[in-house]
Structure formats: structure tokens, C-alpha cells
Design a protein around this nucleic acid. Structure first.
Lengths: 119, 119
DNA sequence: CTTGAACCTCACATCAGTGTCAAGTTCTAC
DNA sequence: GTAGAACTTGACACTGATGTGAGGTTCAAG
């Protein structure tokens, strides 16, 4: 699949897809002419990458993490080192706090919205 | 309370506190010499501001929202306009999606961590 | 007074992902 | 073989909260 098609399927810009490749998060075969050619599994991976970005992980952590994730079609191709597992545990806890914060903010917004509705 | 004290209490840098003032999120009296003097309620407000920032709201939205929130010690000093309520509803939905994304990422991390533990 | 900590304003730097434009190449379909 | 869409690399801009440093003023305690 070409980059345009992948961008369309995932809703992620071509620019970002190239950036992911630059950061080692996403690889592609190349046509004889040099155009990127992605496997079908790429779309899933891109979605995962976006989710992890949204969760505040930086590209380097994502890069380390990706091979340890099981893909939809198979098991992981690597197991996290203790060092990485420790890092990821810290990230996990950060995400927990993030979720708690978000829930508080959501509650705040809900209250303001309810009050506005009530008038 | 002075800016240093407020920074210490909230864990937010002085730089950020001045920035919040610049954006109209936080006001302070001034001493005759021009130093900021915050009321006791400021700490609560700063925490709220940080939470809303973390939830992805921009300073302008926060500025509009703040007067509509009830403070710990009293009711809101304003009610959201329909326009603002609509904006906030969109933000609320965005936060919902964000939470869902975060939960998926957390699950991903947990799985990798579990796998690493299991070896 | 004086001294040092704390504060002031202003300006420029940073981060990391993404947008955007330029100039050139490849692909696909006629 | 040619037109136009799609792709390539490269470089620079932006965003928006925050870091940082300069150069100067105010505050509080001795």
C-alpha cells in the first residue's frame, strides 16, 4: 500500500508517516523507484503509534516498546528488558494520573455545562 | 502570598504563574513595590488550571471557563453562555475520547510489562 | 544602612510533532 | 510517449507552555 492510501485509511498525514519512519517507528519496503510500500499490518501499527503519542510517550520510548507488543496477527517479536519494563511501569503510572486528572476536568466541565443548561 | 510561596505550594514554576497572569487566568494584587500578592484561594485555582491544561484546553478556553466554575468556597460568579457551553461539550467529548485512548495505551503497556515479568 | 534573598520585566530558546512549500522523480493510464 | 497524479527529499515555520538568563528593583532582617 502506498503512503497516500495509508494516510487515508488511518487519518494520519503523510508528513507524520514519513516522520514515524524517520524515528524508526514504521518501516516500509520500497518500489524500484523509491516509493514507500507498506504492508497491510501498517494501518494497525499507525493507530497504535498515535494512541501512544496521545498517551504522552515520546518517539524513542515508542520505538523501544513496539517490538514488544503483540500485533493483531501474532505474538510479540521481542520481550521488554527489565530496564524497559521499569520505564514502562513509570509511564503506566503517569498515564494513571493523567486519567484521574482528565476525569476531574471532565467533571468540572460537566458541572459548568449542567449549570448553563439549568438556566 | 508571594509568587515563590505559591509556586512552592502548587509545584508550578514562577514562570508559569506569571504566564497564567499574562493570559488572564490568574490575578494578583500588587504590593506598593510591584510584587505580586496572591489570595489564599490562588493555590486551588492554579491546580485547576493545571488540570485543565493537562486535559488539552487552551488558555483562552480556560479563561472563559474559570469564572463559571464554583470555587471551593462559593458558587460560580458567572454562568456559561450557550456558545461556551457548546464549546465545552465538544471539549468534554474530546476528553472522553482521550480517556478511552489512554485506557487502551495503558492496557498495551500492562500487557508488555506482564510479559516481561513472566520471563 | 546594608546585604542577600526574592521579586520584577523582557527577550530569546526549547521541545516534538506537524504543516507547508519547493524542486524534482516515479507511477499509471491513455 | 506523454500528461497528471502521486510520490520523493529537504528545509523552514509554527504552536503554546515552559525554561533560562540578563539586568534591575524591592523586601525583610540584622
Amino acid at each position: 500500500m502506498r503512503i497516500g492510501e495509508l494516510a487515508r485509511r488511518t487519518g494520519v498525514s503523510e508528513r507524520s508517516l514519513r516522520y514515524y519512519e524517520e524515528r524508526g517507528l514504521l518501516t516500509a519496503e520500497r518500489t524500484p523507484g523509491g516509493h514507500r510500500d507498506y504492508p497491510e499490518t501498517a494501518a494497525d501499527r499507525v493507530i497504535r503509534i498515535q494512541e501512544l503519542y496521545a498517551a504522552g510517550l515520546h518517539s524513542e520510548k515508542i520505538r523501544q516498546l513496539l517490538p514488544c507488543m503483540r500485533d493483531r496477527d501474532g505474538g510479540p517479536s521481542a520481550v521488554a528488558t527489565p530496564r524497559l519494563a521499569q520505564d514502562l511501569t513509570a509511564e503506566r503510572d503517569r498515564i494513571d494520573r493523567m486519567i484521574a486528572d482528565l476525569c476531574r476536568s471532565r467533571e468540572t466541565l460537566d458541572e459548568v455545562i449542567r449549570t448553563a443548561r439549568g438556566t
